[in-house]
């Protein structure tokens, strides 16, 4: 399982407008194109996950994630903020790349952990590549992910 296989162009926003953690979560959840009640339920779960401990893993990356009934398969959305957003990350630096991962509650929890691990690994590779901040357009972004995952 690779990040490039999980991401689609429609679920990428390379120009996040929000300046707060909550706003970023809302923008990312919107990319999943769920019904309004499902979106609200998912946001509640993601906010609770952030209360449990920040999903900002440092080096400018945040990977908000949860398992939720509102999806039927592992679903990923990606966002990029040019200015960066305070995400209470471990290294206390602002996050500019966001990977939202939502998995259904059914199925083997190990699959979810594997998917999460793969995304975390790919995200770290991406944060080390300077092109990630300037690449334009979702398709080129996916192309860059593919290149880095090779």
């Amino acid at each position: 399982m690779k990040l490039s296989e999980l991401v689609t162009a429609k679920r990428i926003n390379l120009d996040l407008k929000s300046t707060t953690k909550d706003g970023v979560l809302e923008e990312l959840v919107k990319l999943l194109r769920l019904s309004k009640p499902a979106r609200e339920a998912l946001l509640k779960t993601l906010r609770s996950r952030e209360e449990l401990g920040s999903t900002g893993v440092g080096k400018g990356i945040a990977i908000p994630h949860c398992r939720s009934l509102v999806v039927s398969e592992v679903t990923v959305a990606v966002g990029r903020s040019k200015k960066g957003i305070s995400f209470k990350s471990m290294d206390k630096k602002c996050a500019f790349l966001f990977f939202l991962i939502v998995a259904p509650p059914v199925g083997d929890p190990a699959d979810y952990l594997i998917a999460l691990g793969k995304v975390a690994q790919a995200a770290r590779l991406m944060s080390a590549d300077k092109r990630i901040k300037s690449v334009k357009g979702p398709k080129k972004f996916i192309g860059l992910i593919e290149e880095l995952e090779r």
């Binding site: 401990g53 893993v57 691990g117």
Partner: peptide, 21 residues
Amino acid sequence: QTKALGKMGFKMTNVESLENT
């Protein structure tokens, strides 16, 4: 799970907040 997630850099320290929710 917490060990695996901890290795990926995710903190899960505030379980009390979840119990309150």
